[in-house]
Amino acid sequence: MLSLERLRVLHAISAHGSVTGAAEALHVTTSAISQQMAKLEREVGQRLLERNGRGVRLTGAAELLVAHAGRMLSLAERAEADLEAHRGAVVGRLTLAAFATAARGLVPPALGELRRDHPRLRVELEEAEPHETVPRVARGDLDMAIVQDWSGHPLPLPGDLNRVVLLDDVADVALPEGHPLAAGDAVGLAELAGEPWITWSRGWICTAWLLSTLRSCGAEPDIAHIAAEHHTQLALVAAGLGVAVVPRLGRDPVPGGVRFVEVRPSPVRHVYAVWRADADRRPSIRAVIRVLRRHALSGPPEPTASAARAG
């Protein structure tokens, strides 16, 4: 009888491309991975890993076994979800990842409510970007992720993931307080196309959206500064070093010297939760979704004259 846990190890090596990657994903040592693989090779009577430079590669027998392992692990997850649903209790451990502003502006009050209402449920939060978290949810390294995409730039999702929309988050343009357009109520991005821009890291979906949107206005974007964190972007804006598009979710506190102006048409990013379809019946998954949706309903605050102008 094949050991499901050893098949999980082999599947992790295939998914992560190395023994080290599998060990990190499964939170064990590389020695433990090697021991489990040696036992699995004895069970099947065939070699499963071969040396490949400093790493390893899967043999043909291992590739065949990995295909079966994926289906077996999926069935095991469904069985666990059914048992958890049958018991009906919101208990156990759930790993959740969220991009930075959702981790700051949406998740903390939701986790506080879950801790009060379901003290036997342990939700562990990790801050990470969607391009990192979606593959990890699909592999089973995470139970759930809060991700984002922008209008016209959907985030590709594997077919075995479920999703639910949490909120649509409007973005405004952040201008230095002395900027000629800072006194207006609204501005078009075309009016700002030639400005020096402060944007997110290269390769992020929000950066791709900004670049394509500005190019559609007929100007090649002048990217003056790159900063992953909105608070860093706002500090650069306050110093008069450029302008930035900043969504409303989780952007407080705002430094002095920054003026938010609405953009017409309004840029919107869509915030949603994703999880594996095989885990859909888990009471813990459903409880987390319910609480996240309830807290998302209030949404980010609308900008007011006092809130828009800091300092």
Rank of each mutant, 00 (worst) to 15 (best):
G45D: 12
G45T: 05
Q46M: 10
R47L: 10
R47G: 14
R47D: 08
L48Y: 10
L48Q: 11
L49H: 12
E50T: 12
E50Q: 14
N52S: 15
N52Y: 11
G53A: 08
R54Q: 14
G55W: 03
L58W: 05
T59M: 02
A61T: 07
A62D: 08
E63F: 01
E63T: 03
L64E: 15
L64Q: 15
L64C: 09
L64A: 15
A67R: 14
M72F: 11
M72S: 14
M72N: 08
L75E: 15
L75I: 04
A76G: 05
A76M: 01
A76T: 02
E80G: 01
E84Y: 00
E84L: 07
H86V: 03
R87G: 14
A89E: 00
V90W: 01
G92S: 04
G92L: 00
R93F: 01
L94F: 06
L96G: 11
A98H: 06
A98K: 02
F99V: 04
F99P: 07
F99S: 09
F99I: 03
A102V: 06
A102T: 06
A103R: 03
A103E: 08
R104T: 12
G105E: 10
L106P: 09
L106R: 04
L106S: 11
A110H: 06
A110I: 03
G112T: 10
L114S: 06
L114A: 07
L114T: 05
D117C: 03
P119Q: 06
R120M: 01
